[in-house]
Design a protein around this nucleic acid. Sequence first.
DNA 1: AGAAATCAGTTGCTGGTGCAACCATTACCC
DNA 2: GGGTAATGGTTGCACCAGCAACTGATTTCT
Lengths: 168, 168
Amino acid sequence: MDRTSPEPLALERFLPYRLNVLASTVSNALARIYAERFGITIPQWRIVATLGQFETRTARDIAAHAVMHKSTVSRAVAALAERGIVERRPNAQDMREELLALTDEGRAIYEAVAPEALAFERAVVSGLTEGERETFFRLIDTLDARMRSLVPDLDVADAAANASEASR
Amino acid sequence: MDRTSPEPLALERFLPYRLNVLASTVSNALARIYAERFGITIPQWRIVATLGQFETRTARDIAAHAVMHKSTVSRAVAALAERGIVERRPNAQDMREELLALTDEGRAIYEAVAPEALAFERAVVSGLTEGERETFFRLIDTLDARMRSLVPDLDVADAAANASEASR
DNA sequence: AGAAATCAGTTGCTGGTGCAACCATTACCC
DNA sequence: GGGTAATGGTTGCACCAGCAACTGATTTCT
């Protein structure tokens, strides 16, 4: 091997970079749909999606399930409650937490957004065969698990949502 | 319940979500290295990497190559120039643009960071076989191309870098 | 029981980011 | 040639996210 340059590093072959670009491209495109059609942000969508899936959860559950910082969840829930999309009910067994659920209006939004989100996903992966799609997910799972063991203090803090808000 | 959900949408099987979580996990871990060891942010790192690869480029070139918003590039370059990591030289042929290059100190940083970045990448993909690694990159390439045709007005604006800065 | 630690959730603050408006320079073209 | 459009780059503004500090509720420990 040639030893002139210590190591070749081409950004376009650097995994963290490629992953980040693809993820934000996909997110931004999807965020546009959420924002323009339904007036919700990505964190808000994640909450709606979680509650659509599980009926009733606490903010803490949602933060863990949707991998968001608790302050992000808090503010997104506040906005959704304000708009009557999410309902907060006290838990008599533990007054620290609140039980969150979709209102009827919230469920209507969920049922309108979910098909569009899935359609978007299908459009994105339409260039892949079924096998490739499964492989891709499996590799993501593997890498995700790898990250969790590489960086143990991750699930605690973390925070995904590169959002890219709606405005307007 | 009488409600029949039209389509199942589980967040953990939703590609945009999975992609985003993985990308930000990887980015955050890497950003920590950049920040703690070298005091640079992800946008700054992308600029250093680009200039390390191509010697001399304009801010516009870097923005295109590293997929960042021009204002992000502008500010990151300003910070790097301030610290003497990159050098700005006027282009006599076109006074609008500036030619950017690493200083000696900048190159030293590049040559220190690059191996660490690559080591990190190797650690992340160490759970994959060589073939899986190639497949993963190929699928990312495919999806990336797919996104570009799905959302044409993308390369113009876009902006990756969910950064997650150093601070502290 | 009472003090201290822990936990769910909220909020002030700071910093980074995209957008859009702007400045200066160059290209276009009638 | 001269006016207008386009281009490279900077910056003010508004917004959002994470951190950390805080409140109030519950658990733990002695």
